[in-house]
Amino acid sequence: MEKEMLGKLERLAAEIRINSIEAIRKVGAGHIGGSLSIADLLAVLYGKQMKFDPKNPQWEDRDRLVLSKGHAGPALYSTLSAVGFFDKSWLGTLNEGGTKLPSHPDRTKTPGVDATTGSLGQGTSVAAGLATGLKMQQKDNYVYLIVGDGELNEGQCWEAFQYIAHFKLNNCIVIIDENKKQLDGTTQDILNPFDIEAKMQAFGFATQKVKGDDLVAIDEAINASKTVTDQAVCIVLDSIKGQGVPFFEEMEANHSVKFDNADIQKATDEALEVLRTKERG
């Protein structure tokens, strides 16, 4: 990756984090942990890999993104705003009555959202259906499916993965955000996922595992996935809940954070200042 492109993606990732945190803080609480853990991934997808047109959100030749872990909607909204689908001012309406940015993505409300998600597991089937339709139309567009590791508790994920693998839907790039925490604790304590990479390989996927904050490695993994012609593909992100912001990374209960005391507000202000420095390059 050229230095100029890497700098662009680093700034985009910082912007996604800043806007996600500010939008959630305005509401007073929200899913910061899982939003921040996919900020780098979203920067690579929307900053380099995906085909889309902000002026024509329903462009037929666009790539599709299915955020199956729909509680990370703030990160997706921040990304869509950053690349021009709607004005940044919308982010201040997150989860308000009548908003176009509900807590979980809704394709009927938000420009750039391709799938309504949030009931965990269902996005996997939606992505499988989208990929099947594109294959039937002999189109070369990609579907990017982002799944949470806690979400893998849902059996529907594994039904969809079996389908994707059986039909060798290599146009559906499955990306599992392994940030190792879910609502009630660590994934290992709640329902041990064991080795997700090995599981996906056993299901028939060509699987890669990369650091979730390594923009270059994520980009290279996507490129490699696109060279696979006779097998389903999966990328496992070795990420951290609250990734990119040490204060939130170190917070024990960081799945959903409440901004309900002065210490959290002060630490958040300090974290945002660091991110703004990165955003300015």
Rank of each mutant, 00 (worst) to 15 (best):
E2P: 01
K8H: 11
E10N: 03
R11I: 09
L12A: 11
S20V: 12
S20R: 03
I21Q: 07
G33M: 09
A39C: 14
A39N: 01
D40G: 04
L41E: 03
L42Y: 13
Q49F: 04
D53L: 00
N56Y: 08
W59F: 06
R62C: 09
R64G: 00
L67S: 07
G70V: 07
A72Y: 01
G73N: 09
G73K: 08
P74E: 09
L80R: 03
S89V: 09
G92W: 05
G92C: 00
T93Q: 13
N95Q: 11
T99S: 15
T99G: 05
K100P: 00
D106K: 13
K109M: 14
K109T: 07
D114Q: 09
A115G: 07
L120D: 01
L120F: 06
G121M: 11
T124E: 04
A128W: 01
G129R: 02
K135H: 01
Q138S: 12
K139I: 10
N141Q: 15
N141L: 06
L145I: 07
L145W: 03
G148Y: 07
G150K: 12
Q156D: 14
Q156R: 05
E159Q: 14
I164C: 04
K180V: 02
Q182A: 07
T187K: 05
Q188G: 00
Q188N: 01
Q188A: 13
D189F: 03
L191Y: 09
I196S: 02
I196E: 02
E197W: 00
F203P: 02
T207Q: 10
Q208Y: 04
D213L: 00
A217T: 06
I218S: 05
D219M: 13
N223Q: 15
K226Y: 01
T229M: 05
D230P: 05
K241R: 11
G244A: 08
E249Y: 08
V257D: 03
K258Y: 08
K258T: 03
D260P: 05
D263L: 12
A267W: 04
A267H: 14
A271P: 00
V274L: 15
